[in-house]
Nucleic acid binder design. Sequence first.
DNA 1: ACAAATCGTAAGCGATAACTTACGGTAAGT
DNA 2: ACTTACCGTAAGTTATCGCTTACGATTTGT
Lengths: 105, 105
Amino acid sequence: MSYEYAIAALADPTRRAIIDRLRSGALPVGAIHDGMPVSRPAVSQHLRVLSDAGLLTVTPCGNRRLYAIAPEGVDNLRRYLDSLWDDALAAFARAAEEQAKGNSK
Amino acid sequence: MSYEYAIAALADPTRRAIIDRLRSGALPVGAIHDGMPVSRPAVSQHLRVLSDAGLLTVTPCGNRRLYAIAPEGVDNLRRYLDSLWDDALAAFARAAEEQAKGNSK
DNA sequence: ACAAATCGTAAGCGATAACTTACGGTAAGT
DNA sequence: ACTTACCGTAAGTTATCGCTTACGATTTGT
């Protein structure tokens, strides 16, 4: 249902870089921003988009806020692509068979 | 390697609608455009983007051009999301274990 | 209590993207 | 040969997006 926001969120390279940094586990905003070519507020805005898309979870921890990848959000996208892949493969096989029939005649 | 273009291409709802129409098999541009809320040149431009992203294949067939989903392009994205899902799950499990340890003390 | 750190939000700006209309080019039908 | 159908491309416009700077709120440390 909401995989649309997830795929739109992952379309941006900066947001993918953020996601990549969170692959090994949760991080506060400062650590995510460290070494990034954009400002910290920009990172905050991207984190907002990723959270709204269901790709990240936020857990306030004292002074800081820990962001982590939400497996469920990623799985939504995965399922969409899986169904697309199934249909694409079936259509591909059907087309190949069709052409083989046409050539053998 | 080139899944970046693919995910950017699929971020647009109109392009996803085009992809959905091709799930059952190849179609010419006119059939893809039928009933769509945008102009036919717009569809052509979207088809161009999807082709450049490796998500579609084109086969000129007489007067028309048949577009079909390229399974390989879809698979590229699938693999990216699979690896992301693996890491996200691992990190999630690790965090849960960590927290359980902290609570049990 | 005061200062420093961490983070989100508001406002504004420049670039990009999606769309339209108009046009050209090639293949099929008469 | 001429017309019609099918499709891609060019030019221009409008809206959206990603970014920056500036500011406010909350929490930690002294």
